[in-house]
Nucleic acid binder design. Sequence first.
DNA 1: AGATCCACTTGACATTTGTCAAGTCTTGGA
DNA 2: TCCAAGACTTGACAAATGTCAAGTGGATCT
Lengths: 201, 201
Amino acid sequence: MSPLSKIHQNLFILIYLNSIVPLSSELKSFLSNKIKRKVYAKNHIINREGEICNNLHVIKKGMVRGYYISDSTDITTWISSDGDIFTSITGFFKNEPAKENIQCLEDTYCEYLEYQDFHYCLKNFPEMREINRIMMVEYYIHAENRAFMTRIPNAKSRLSYFLKNADPKVVERIPKKFLASFLAMRPETLSRILTYPFLPK
Amino acid sequence: MSPLSKIHQNLFILIYLNSIVPLSSELKSFLSNKIKRKVYAKNHIINREGEICNNLHVIKKGMVRGYYISDSTDITTWISSDGDIFTSITGFFKNEPAKENIQCLEDTYCEYLEYQDFHYCLKNFPEMREINRIMMVEYYIHAENRAFMTRIPNAKSRLSYFLKNADPKVVERIPKKFLASFLAMRPETLSRILTYPFLPK
DNA sequence: AGATCCACTTGACATTTGTCAAGTCTTGGA
DNA sequence: TCCAAGACTTGACAAATGTCAAGTGGATCT
């Protein structure tokens, strides 16, 4: 069995949700029928600012970034990969147009749940509301952490902080120009730091 | 009637929660009995890193900041004032020790709900789970926004972005050294920008 | 009221980081 | 396979921001 066949088999979302709160068998079977799969090509833009993103994704394998265009500068605010969930928060949870863009950095194998199915669950399966609540807490802690990281005053310390909390296997897959933007520095600066990591600070 | 007597009368939390999702009268009366009031003096530290913060606060009047100490540098990551809610997310929603410190920047009039009462509501009043879910979505969007702001590449643009989305009346009450830290710059830099706002960028 | 503390400002200077340009290497497409 | 595009690195330099120090004024405490 090839590694990819596994990717086409499992129900990552189910496993993920079940790990937060055990699902009733009714909810499990409902979800099994609703979960869809999709492979996005590298560089594909999953959704653009102003569009409504209707899906809650789990990444089985691949990598994805969220970014804004501000004053024609491309600013990456999050990067997700294998096993992570992602969505446009404003789109999926508030049903408003997304404020951010989402782009694939690798060919990305996803499972996803559509807005109406998710909200059907929220309405009809009480454990889903608890799951969503906990998901949002985790999401928040993650965002707060990113908000803290970028306030660390120098470039090398921001990188160290990031590396301390990241999986090295994943880090080496992140294109450096996006990692630089995520760390609030220019690609040239990141390149120099990585080349001379022994320099002070 | 003095302005302060109003502060001692209303149930801000009830109004706040009710504005998210209409509360059942049972929940309303339950909450009315559980909501407590407290006045914190300026500079008082409401909770410290490592402690469990058990309360969900609404600020009736006053100002509060969340901050971290990293490498003996004080980093402010959020500032809340009149009408805002705040809590230590890890403490209140996960019942784990807080990762951040919370300090009053003014004498601050709060209403608060204790952990066990809030969680009793989550268990027994379904609308409370929906409220909390929505609260967390708002919280997240706010944190994501702060994570974006600090990635804007120059100091003056970060300030402009912040001012565009903030209430000027509140801004002028924020001590400049904390505002500077929140904007990921040194107090001297903020001072210069404010003194010469007409300079380019 | 007087004294002390500290926030804020300002100047001079140091350091970090950004900018621009050139060159190399990799990647993807024709 | 070859070409073109673009990611990454490196150098030289420019600009932004941080650091340090001094001075002012306002707030707070006794």
